[in-house]
Design a protein around this nucleic acid. Sequence first.
DNA 1: TTGTAAGCGTTATCAG
DNA 2: CTGATAACGCTTACAA
Lengths: 322, 322
Amino acid sequence: MVNGSTTVDPALREIVTQAVDDLNYVPNAAARALMTRRTDSVTLVAAEGDDRVFGDPFFAQIVRGASQELTRAGVQLSLSMTQSDLQISSLSRYLAGGHTDGVLLISEHGGHRLAEKLVEAGIPVVIGGRPLDPAVEVPYVDNDNVAGGRLAAEHLRARGCRRVATIAGPADMSAGCDRLEGFRQGLGPDFREDLVEHGLFTMASGEAAATRLFERSPDIDGIFVASDLMALGAISVIRKLGKRVPDDVAIVGFDDIELASMAEPSLTTIRQRTENQGRLMARLLLRQLGHEVDDVESEPAPSTPDGRGIVQHVDLIERESA
Amino acid sequence: MVNGSTTVDPALREIVTQAVDDLNYVPNAAARALMTRRTDSVTLVAAEGDDRVFGDPFFAQIVRGASQELTRAGVQLSLSMTQSDLQISSLSRYLAGGHTDGVLLISEHGGHRLAEKLVEAGIPVVIGGRPLDPAVEVPYVDNDNVAGGRLAAEHLRARGCRRVATIAGPADMSAGCDRLEGFRQGLGPDFREDLVEHGLFTMASGEAAATRLFERSPDIDGIFVASDLMALGAISVIRKLGKRVPDDVAIVGFDDIELASMAEPSLTTIRQRTENQGRLMARLLLRQLGHEVDDVESEPAPSTPDGRGIVQHVDLIERESA
DNA sequence: TTGTAAGCGTTATCAG
DNA sequence: CTGATAACGCTTACAA
């Protein structure tokens, strides 16, 4: 009756209801999970340190989107972040033990094979971002990073920039690789390997990368930066160098975080629909868990590329910085 | 044997070990929890929307501190954030069901009585920040917000400011009230009720509050802002007004987030030991759960004020902005 | 050192 | 529509 059975005598129902809040009874989750083999909760795992997770609006938006969708389905969302290998194996044991019905995995770096471990353990997983290793057969939701890189390159060229550099993301993440690849494509023959630096998507790493770039080549007049946070860092370095943005150096970022529009100068950037990515991930997972969900295909824009992934469109937002 | 029994015949042990990874067996968490009545996991609940939780470095530091301590004790940390009343009651049912061994509660606003509900349900709870309602008998770890407000006020006066305003935190949070109260004490007869505005600890709310302040009283020459994020927002408004910081308007913030030292001008602020706060909260909770923990009293600085709380010292960090 | 049995609080099944 | 009974997978205590 507590679980909402409708075929109960009103009198009995009254008695039970009374008792329930006299004793303030709450069904025991463990016992229930033992029987039903479900916990009605899913875990969002960010393979990243807490500083990055909390520092980058990207994560907040994924959480917001996923959380909306999960709440609607009556599923609790909990977060775990994890960096060291030690934590990863302890976490995967924890999750494999049936603590959670499914996992949303984001910011996966190549190397630690968390996704595979979870899948082996029979836990439904959805990844945010294309897995670098094509052998990983896990559904994922990605953004069209290659197209984004291309758009940025084309924009900078059209603007008349001659020496165009890039601050790419980490080489062990698909977002890092793909944005760089798109940039390479977009620039064509003008692409120069020596004008590539990598950062970790953080503001500090953006500053460091920009510094290295200008030490090596002071006459750079355009940079595609693979995240807005890094772009903000790069801009502060450029200013300290006494150059103006965008007159001396034009900048295109990636993500379209809120700060991008508020910054001065406001940041030209590639917009990706992060919150929607979180929503789609949640739906994909819920579907695996046997919940009723609106078809993910009905969403505007997402197409499917290789087989089991969904890729969202991105577009360029033109603002003051380029 | 799987749980580490030492009194097992080596031969048998070998056989079991073999079988375990042949079948890749993982003990079932639900069944275990059913017996032991423990899940070896605790939940950090932030009574706040995802935008604030992820936007404010405060949360990251609490998580970092707590996570260190819990990992050491072999306890998993998971996060939940919750804003609406609906989510709160669903969350408290979820937690009361035995999904977690204990709860770390932060950013509690007055009103929704999450802490009480959890305590009634018999779940160990530790609160970050003094509960506004003194009837709530829950251990907590707070910072000496009153002293912080006083320090800020005294600093601004000593600096020669004549018309000193404040952007306080939310009136339904103890940190908001206490910092304001300290400021009032520190300013003494110079305190002016009409130079008080409230914000929500976010950058945007800091901008809004500063705007209101200067509309009402353009000759303000000093502001104590109850969070660094709000202070950053206030500074940007002040600049747009064509005034200089600190020459025309001196600013003291609160929190000492990393951005405070990097901003230009760097921010004079009240430093609180947030990461340590997270650590202490975790220890207090672990102790309630019957784990062996270093005495919390052995920590540098923390004293105990009313009875069940720990209050950390704060101090003023002098930088360019005041 | 090993084996056995009881019980944790649910849900599911199946007679009444 | 109601009540009894058998799992679910583990831990614990006790007997062998």
